[in-house]
Amino acid sequence: MNVKTLENLWTAFVAGERDFTGISLVGADLNHWSLARVDFWGADFSGANLAQANFRRANLKEAQFKNAILAGADLRWADLREASLTEADLSDARLEGALYNAQTCFPQGFSPEQARMWQLAPGAALATKDLRDRDLGGTDLSGADLSGTLLVNSQLFGAVFRNANLLSALLGDSDLRYADLRRATLMLADLHGANLRRADLTQANLIGANLRGCDLSETNLNGALYSDTTQFSRGFEVPDTLYHLAPGASLWGADLSGARLTGVDLSGANLAGANLMHADLWGACLANADLSGANLLGTNLLGTDLSGANLSQTNLMQAIIDLPGDMAAMVSFNGQPA
């Protein structure tokens, strides 16, 4: 690393350049430099002096920090996925909200949880976190809890959100092309202006979601759930492969397994033969609904209004239930313990 390269880096930085993907800054002295939000994807900082440097929200994915001095550096909300921090000096470095994954290498004895870093992995707990303006394309977040998460203007091309909980998540203007959103809960989520072209939303829960201004061309919406409160773009014709959840709806034989249907009003609906296995119907209204022959195996029925519901031949095995006395008698009559 010669001084001239550093001078040129500084000149380009001052001139407004922010993309330094793959740059080699081996042994560079960047002590106290302010490099917030700069893209250093795959950069090599081996042996560099980065003490007190500001890397806030910087993209440091796959960056190399072997023997780098990061003492007192500000790495808050930086993307450190697949970065190699082995043998780096992280003393007094601020890492709150920095992203990491299983491939990120930390110095021995370092605990990312104690440093309050956020792990991006399947099943991760990222509720209400700020992940806006990030390049998270191709990331596997299947089954993750992203309820209320801020993902506005994020790059989510090809990301995997299968079975993820995106309840009330803010995904406006994000790039979700080719994203896998199968069985994802997008209930009350704001997707205004998001690009969902060729995304897979099979059996996704879109109840109350805002899809105005979304590009839904060639989007797979088979078996997705929507309600009267779901807002589609003007002129969008809802395909009949979607399930319309409303009082009195005809959902005969519908596959609603694993769906989060908390508080949904399905009173008087025809759910005969429907598959509601492991669905969450907490606080839902199923009064006078026809559930004959429906599969409610492992379904959460706490607080569900089942008054007047037809439960003949309904499978309630392992269902979480708080039926009143008379209903409990009916379950017992069916010979299926709750």
Partner: peptide, 17 residues
């Protein structure tokens, strides 16, 4: 000059590896 400097930075970065 700005464009040249940027090209040089990136070229030098490549040469370092």
């Amino acid at each position: 000059r700005r464009q040249g400097l940027l090209d040089q930075v990136l070229a030098e970065a490549d040469q370092d590896r």
